[in-house]
Amino acid sequence: MTKTSPAYILIFMIILCTVFGTAISSVYYATLDMLKKNEKLHKNRIICQAFKLPVSGVSADAFQKAIDDNISYDQITYQGRPWDTFKQKDTGSIGFIFSGTGFWDRITGIMVLSPDLLKCMAIQFLDQKETPGLGARIEEEWFTDQFKGVPIAWDQPADKRIIIGPSPIPNAKNRVDAITGATQTSLALMKFLNSELESFRAARKEWQEKKIFEVPSPSWE
């Protein structure tokens, strides 16, 4: 069998892929616990930031304690989709995990609303893979800060509850600035945020109607 024969090439590639595939899997499984711990810490930190919780320290336990002390967690299932929802014990602010397709990949985050769902209190992103320096700037403070106190225009069409970028209505109060050079990310974000808000409101309404508040809440993991 010569080096140029298809059989040699095929066998060579199979062996190479097997060896390197095994190596990657081994490293992944060896670090799996650390990866999971890091992921949980990141999630807890983002929740604390979104609800502006007082955290005593920077350890994973400190963030977990802040959440346990201040937040109650519920999972609502609506039309087959589970929604992770959070309620701040003292202020009654409600948060939920949103998810949607950005320009490149899925974007997930948490949005905190006032107890009456009329105002956005905060937005934070858990995961995004937008273009570094452009779309990825959705995580920056100047962008997320714009959402604080923005009213949700429930009386407007479902895709215009929150507007990111130019608005047909001058001085619209439910508008925030888009990111220059990241028009597609901004538009995608606006599209799925509005869709998520609509679905979340419907999910929460159904959940309240079923009066399942009495069911003990599972602890947030």
Binding site: A23, T31, L35
Partner: peptide, 10 residues
């Protein structure tokens, strides 16, 4: 990929 996983973990 290996170095990416290691940095992500550490």
């Amino acid at each position: 990929m290996i170095i990416d996983i290691i940095i992500k973990a550490l």
